[in-house]
Design a protein around this nucleic acid. Sequence first.
DNA 1: TAGATTGTTAATCGATTAACAATC
DNA 2: TAGATTGTTAATCGATTAACAATC
Lengths: 216, 216
Amino acid sequence: MLDENEIVKNSVPLPSVRRLPLYLTVLEEFKKDNKEWISTTDFSEVLFLKPIQVRKDLAHTGIIGKPKKGFKVDELILTINNFLGWNNLSEAFLVGAGALGSAILGYTGFEHHGLNIIAAFDASPDVIGKKIHGKEVLALEKLPNIAERMQVKLAIVTVPKSAAQDVADCLVSAGIKGIWNFSPIKLQVPNDVVVQREDLSSGLAVLSVKLGRFDR
Amino acid sequence: MLDENEIVKNSVPLPSVRRLPLYLTVLEEFKKDNKEWISTTDFSEVLFLKPIQVRKDLAHTGIIGKPKKGFKVDELILTINNFLGWNNLSEAFLVGAGALGSAILGYTGFEHHGLNIIAAFDASPDVIGKKIHGKEVLALEKLPNIAERMQVKLAIVTVPKSAAQDVADCLVSAGIKGIWNFSPIKLQVPNDVVVQREDLSSGLAVLSVKLGRFDR
DNA sequence: TAGATTGTTAATCGATTAACAATC
DNA sequence: TAGATTGTTAATCGATTAACAATC
């Protein structure tokens, strides 16, 4: 019998997973141009990747190509979206309706990525009851109730770091199983809850170091 | 003589660079608690990393620790910030004052990361002339002039993908040498310009796949 | 058919982890 | 001193890249 770790071990490399959305954007472009086929060399030219890497990445999704032609555009879009679970929408909450939270609420692209943000929550009376980009901001205390009633399993955390762990604890006890964490701390959660941390400062660190190589 | 590639090759691994800001947040916490020393095991407990990995990462910054004690908190903060170039502020422009751009303008944390956003630019007459979080939004056409006059070398790009490459071309010809790119496309720039792409969809892809391992 | 592109197997590369002597 | 923690050298692991036969 396989345990959880073993599943993780045998699975698709995360760097490959991170590249899949990139392929989707190229595919949408090809689709718009009514192209039926796309090859790994097509991808590699636009994305500055090696064809072999693209081939390896795509192979992980299970798609099978045709020598000399490549992959069917429509089929590949479907396969990647399926692989990522982006074909069926998951409902999600957003917690923390500050500047970043508002920006995320205003971004319409997540529906293409399987994410449907149905409500926002905040602790501050200043924003509770208001609507941001058409989505109502509710009092944080109401979250557990609504999560249970609507069976919501996903949450986006955009609160300040001082509040992040408390919010996470609240989410976990409300039955949330996946957290997209935009706060700059590591959240402690049980084994069956998945956290993905989005860290702007690490991106900025990479930029700084790359720049340093030229400046210094 | 070393060429550019060789410098890159011999340099600190990017995964290590990405973790450095994480160490900084822990260090600030220790500093606040007036602790003088911090060990790699201290870090590893808070961040769920292996002590050996922390030691390797810190070694890249050039700091030297003391057996049995660890590292001096103040000295390590200084060393990491120095390594990242976050001790002296670089002035930066933000291009694209939409939802995400506004959120970034409103985030006060970047000053701690060596980044001082001094102005925003946009093409839309609706926002030009307005102030967002205290920063003026100027017409995009004015960017080259102001960039040259103020010798600004950094830009944050938060425009829609349809405009991203055009904006990048404009930035490059205005003398910008570093671009923090929040649009979902790969920008084509000359060799001496550094681009760091920040890609929310790749983070969401990882979350989706991790979740899939539990659901399916 | 010839040649481009696939999928697979093997080699390389780089990052992580382990082992251990040095040291305060 | 004993023991915790460092820095270094070597082993392991995983991802990328190369090589090449299969195929349309």
